[in-house]
Design a protein around this nucleic acid. Structure first.
Lengths: 256, 256
DNA sequence: CAGTGGTCTAGACCACATT
DNA sequence: ATGTGGTCTAGACCACTGT
């Protein structure tokens, strides 16, 4: 075996984490774009000076986080929001009876504002930072069920136009990616229940005070940097929020 | 290398999955109890006739599912609901401001009934099957915030007494485990919002109609068999349901 | 066919915990 | 000192995909 120089970043870190770190850097720097294939394992082993097993452990973690996707016989690809119905990993609303379906999105409004104190804090921005605000109404099975109120830091999305948002035929996250080079890697959500206020009630065509599911989602990119803050109000008479249903953390049908 | 007989169960399954399967069987059969240490990797390699790497991959998946817990230098242990504050993996309610805390549980009632059609279906039971029903009230920060209505199949929990439930100084899941040999391995939850009915309103000391978070949880054991159906009503004025917050699927602080 | 990821081996050495 | 899991290697062969 030959001795290899470990980079300065390695402070007791396992080699495979160092490799993962370098892969994440390469992704962040745009060396490989979403949907593209990354070099074969053999190539990457040479590049990083590690054995297959070590490289594999790094890639394993990244596939577990849905950052990379492996296809046997084809290659390893950067996860994209277009393909792989990946969006369903972020959309948790289901009909109480029946199959999951794609929502129909209806643009309502887009404005530019200063973020209030709470929103700025959640986005990791300074007080009074500028944001782009998008209001959407989503329908499932022909019925308006969700209102989305989305805040995007000007710093990332300053160039966004209403046309881009209206005329896209993709998900918003794909627009972030293709139009602004921003990859949403994961989200965290907080839920509570509250009565519909006048504005939401009007948009959903329900009585004010109707109990709604209220979801606050932070979307994060590399280094856990927040790139979106989204409030959703969900009419949950015929729909529900699902978590843990066979999608998650279960490498191979764990049940036994 | 020597040729090894592959068991009949292996139908194109990778060897490490076969090993995992056998480990799961051993756990299900009670060969090692929760909290106990399982044999060292070397031993298990001999037992199953595989190399370290293969055994390791099987155990890797089981630790990812929180079924086993590894401690470097000490051994690998069967996950238990007592230790490791593991319960927090199943309890998702947090104060909107401040740190997560243990709820104070107050017993309300315990009865035996026939399951209604919907509950029976969710529990995978025949129509009209008998169940044990437990009603609890949970407080956070001294305030009643949650009502739990729990259904347990008689078939598993027929011997359960009110004393056991009242006098336990542990979580319910630990009681299932220690008293009934039932290991809750994972849960799935569905959330919606609704107005408090008279019964829940009285228990929480709020006005009827107050919007509440309503959670339906199925707790699953080996083979994805349902062992508990739990309805929770949560007063979400000062508390919220959190998902995706740094706990999940992230092997090592993925953010970068 | 060549190229890819998927599995598996049989070791080695390291880091940690306990005796 | 011993035993544990944690990391890493340098191969091998298999299974799948595309040409």
């Amino acid at each position: 075996m030959h001795q290899v120089f470990r980079s300065d970043v390695a402070l007791g870190l396992p080699l495979y984490r160092e490799v993962k770190h370098k892969l994440m850097e390469a992704l962040r720097d745009g060396e490989w774009k979403p949907g593209e294939m990354i070099p074969a394992e053999k190539r990457l082993c040479e590049r990083f000076g590690v054995s297959v097993g070590t490289l594999r452990k790094a890639v394993d973690e990244m596939t577990a986080e849905h950052i990379l996707i492996r296809h046997q016989g084809r290659g390893t690809f950067v996860a994209s929001h277009s393909q792989d119905r990946y969006m369903f990993g972020f959309f948790h609303i289901c009909p109480k009876t029946g199959q999951k379906e794609y929502p129909q999105v209806e643009f309502v409004a887009m404005t530019r504002e200063k973020a209030d104190a709470d929103s700025a804090r959640r986005l990791g921005l300074g007080r009074g930072a500028k944001v782009v605000r998008i209001l959407n109404r989503l329908s499932l099975g022909g019925r308006a069920v969700i209102v989305d109120d989305i805040l995007l830091p000007e710093r990332f999305f300053g160039a966004m136009t209403e046309e881009q948002v209206r005329e896209r035929r993709t998900t918003l996250y794909q627009l972030y990616q293709d139009g602004f080079d921003i990859a949403v890697l994961r989200t965290e959500e907080r839920l509570d229940a509250l009565g519909a206020d006048a504005r939401i009630a009007a948009l959903l065509g329900i009585a004010a005070g109707t109990p709604l599911l209220h979801i606050v989602r932070r979307a994060l990119t590399f280094r856990d940097e927040a790139v979106e803050l989204r409030h959703s109000w969900v009419l949950s008479t015929d729909h529900e929020y699902v978590v843990g249903e066979d999608a998650q953390r279960r490498p191979g049908g764990a049940g036994e």
